[in-house]
């Protein structure tokens, strides 16, 4: 038995995948699927689309792995593919056919563990929905940059590389994107002030 030694770096796995090593690519998938899925989910706003986009992104990456020259990190390349897929997916959405298999297509999303009381939990859930809705209302470039900074905690250098924009643009766009999100969020929160909400859970007693 081999001891569980240090995991090989992405670059080593990429090199193996480039020679057709399927297991190396699957390792890259396992290593990065959570973060790519999370980014895509926040970008497109629904679990089922996010699943399909993420699948396509990784499958595309596998098909194009030989084109990846390693001049940037694998994650950088992967984010680019995933965001591209996200944008084109939305464009195509109207004419897509879907197969619905109810028991498997429930778009399972592991929400964070929440041990608060049901009422608070519901409120938190409502708030989450509003935040996502506000995000949906931003333009795609603003959404991307907020996801990369606020959710993925990428540095300005990394963001500049992923989005292929100058670092100065990262600064100004981040400022604008945050201001825009704050504004959208304020509108959404205002539209459902407490009291106007009629979705309170009926208590059993």
């Amino acid at each position: 038995m081999t001891p569980p030694g240090p995991s090989p770096p992405d670059s080593a796995l990429v090199n193996r995948a480039r020679t057709g090593d399927e297991s190396a690519f699957v390792d890259l998938l396992l290593r990065h699927q959570d973060r790519i899925y999370a980014s895509v989910l926040r970008f497109c706003g629904n679990a089922e689309d996010a699943r399909e986009i993420t699948q396509r992104a990784f499958i595309n990456a596998w098909r194009r792995i030989k084109d990846f020259k390693g001049d940037c990190a694998f994650t950088t390349w992967m984010y680019r593919i995933a965001f591209n897929e996200s944008v084109t997916f939305r464009r195509e959405e109207g004419r897509r056919r879907t197969v619905s298999i109810p028991d498997r297509e429930d778009g399972r999303v592991a929400e964070p563990v929440d041990d608060r009381r049901p009422g608070e939990r519901m409120e938190a859930e409502e708030n989450r929905k509003k935040v996502q809705e506000a995000l949906n209302r931003l333009d795609p470039e603003e959404r991307k940059i907020l996801i990369l900074k606020e959710l993925e905690d990428r540095s300005y250098d990394e963001i500049a590389e992923i989005l292929e924009i100058p670092k100065g643009t990262v600064r100004s766009r981040l400022f604008r994107a945050r201001a825009a999100l704050k504004e959208k969020l304020a509108v959404l929160l205002k539209s459902t002030e407490p009291g106007s909400v009629e979705t309170r859970p009926r208590s059993g007693g």
Partner: peptide, 28 residues
């Protein structure tokens, strides 16, 4: 606000589909 969205894990079907593609439909 954005942090409140929390962490998510990838849908298991993603792995199933990609592994299927990589190993079965279009191996390297």
């Amino acid at each position: 606000a954005l942090k409140s969205l929390g962490k998510v894990s990838a849908d298991p079907l993603i792995e199933a589909a990609v592994v299927h593609e990589v190993h079965v439909l279009r191996p390297g």
